[in-house]
Design a protein around this nucleic acid. Structure first.
Length: 196
DNA sequence: ACGCAGATTTTCT
DNA sequence: GAAAATCTGCGTT
């Protein structure tokens, strides 16, 4: 495992649940705002959004609009959407070109640039929650649709957790398919958005 | 520790 | 016009 190297495009071109589990332990790096303001965090919590047949997915029933367009792009693309009038959330697009599925990044363990994160956030916690981590890392619609393999926003190799450390539960904050067990997080991590 | 309401705007009905 | 893959601050237990 080549630590610090970008996660290969091939990694994302797999079933979304596998990608979700596989992203745990890997590192999200942001150079948004300049390299001297680099921020980085280890992914500790994710959710899978399975595509056209997942009622909670933005592309349910193959809905294709300006907003959902990046979901139909190549695997390894960033899908950044705006919600509740003030929040950005980051996904990694999965599967194949034209299949609209993705993994929502929900929480990070900060491992670099915590000072920058604190300045952007203004309060704790820094990266426990999908909108919090976007604010901490400077992620907005400006990076919607970019590749996560290179450039200002990327996911690189990191220490993989053991399978026994991964907890599965229902996704948070949705009303459709609310009982589908598609949330994955690291057992006992103090950095997740919530336990249970 | 927990629960609730308000913020704020895009997106689709 | 309503809902939304959320967060915060303030209230009460």
């Amino acid at each position: 495992m080549n630590r610090g190297a970008p996660v290969a495009a091939k990694f994302y071109a797999r079933p979304t649940e596998e990608v979700a589990r596989g992203l745990l332990g890997r590192i999200l790096v942001s150079d948004i705002g300049g390299r001297r303001r680099q921020t980085a965090g280890r992914i500790v919590e994710v959710e899978a959004y399975l595509g056209p047949h997942d009622p909670a997915c933005h592309a349910y029933n193959r809905r294709r609009t300006a907003r959902t367009e990046p979901l139909y792009g190549p695997p390894g693309t960033a899908y950044v959407y705006f919600t509740y009038g003030m929040h950005w959330c980051l996904n990694a697009v999965t599967e194949t070109l034209d299949f609209p599925a993705a993994v929502l990044i929900r929480a990070l363990e900060p491992i670099g640039g915590a000072d920058t994160m604190r300045r952007r956030r203004g309060t704790e916690p820094l990266c426990a929650g999908p909108a919090r981590l976007c604010q901490a890392m400077g992620i907005t619609g400006a990076v919607n649709g970019v590749s996560l393999q290179r450039g200002r926003l990327r996911i690189v190799e990191g220490p993989a957790p053991r399978k026994s450390e991964i907890v599965v539960g229902p996704r948070i904050g949705i009303t459709q398919a609310a009982d589908w067990p598609l949330r994955f997080y690291l057992k006992g991590s103090p950095w997740v958005s919530r336990q249970g």
